[in-house]
Design a protein around this nucleic acid. Structure first.
Lengths: 138, 138
DNA sequence: TAATAAATGCAACAATGTTGCGTTTATTAT
DNA sequence: ATAATAAACGCAACATTGTTGCATTTATTA
């Protein structure tokens, strides 16, 4: 993933490859884990907050980023995988918040998770876990 | 569950059984499904919004209610089961949002859900589902 | 390079979060 | 039943975030 990848991605989704969007995406990529809004705001403080709001909205709508986690009025955003498209998010990972390092990451589970409720139709499943991550465990 | 139950519950948690709290709890109980903040606000419009804010906070802190769901800046609250205590929420149910009737309910899953990530320690698990509920399916 | 649709910045307002403080209320001990 | 007291309330005030309209700027294209 580099700038050109993001430019192409944006064009695919009929979005202009503007500085705000490219800056946001490269910042989020560099951050590695899901990025809290406050951190996004900090690194994007050169752009107007309305622009940031609309940037997040457009990227979310287009399936380029997603809300990974939300707690205590702090929202965490992460970059989507390739399966996501316009109005069509599809994540096969779960979101994990480490209580020690406080990072939120997208993780793959080893086994397929099948949750069912009798007589209910389930379209989408979102799973959030809290605990201690691999790196903090030692 | 009736008024007396809530009074006792509040006293157990060292909270005064005030009108705001009892009104909120009986309203939420009558609502049956998880109650969106806007609806709570509507039925609690006689109390100051700061009081409502603090009422929700105190009941949440004490394990009497919990945030059941959150989307599009609308938060849904639900009454906790008996396992929850002060600073100690413990829900064995999942939260389900029906895309037809738009109600958010707490549901039991038939099978125990065990999610694991290699080398991670998992403390709490939250699961959110979207789909069509039993009543709307027909 | 010009045309044009999209994106930005700014102003403005709404909704919610949050704190401090003086007054009121629920609980308790008398 | 009443007084003492700590908790809760209402109000004012300010912070943060959400959201829209509109004139200006920018990215894309022809």
């Amino acid at each position: 993933m580099d700038i050109q990848y993001f430019k192409d991605l944006l064009h695919e989704r009929a979005l202009k490859a503007t500085n705000s969007r490219l800056n946001l995406l490269t910042t989020m990529l560099a951050y590695k884990s899901a990025m809290p809004y406050s951190a996004i705001q900090e690194s994007m403080k050169s752009v107007d907050r309305v622009t940031l709001y609309r940037t997040l909205e457009s990227l979310k709508q287009s399936g380029i980023i997603h809300k990974a986690y939300q707690e205590n009025n702090e929202t965490y955003y992460a970059i989507c995988g390739k399966k996501c498209g316009h109005q069509q998010h599809s994540h096969d990972h779960i979101h994990f918040k480490c209580l020690k390092c406080e990072l939120v990451t997208c993780e793959q589970t080893t086994t397929d998770i099948k949750i069912s409720i009798p007589e209910f139709v389930i379209n989408t499943t979102s799973i959030y876990l809290e605990g201690i991550c691999k790196l903090c465990k030692d």
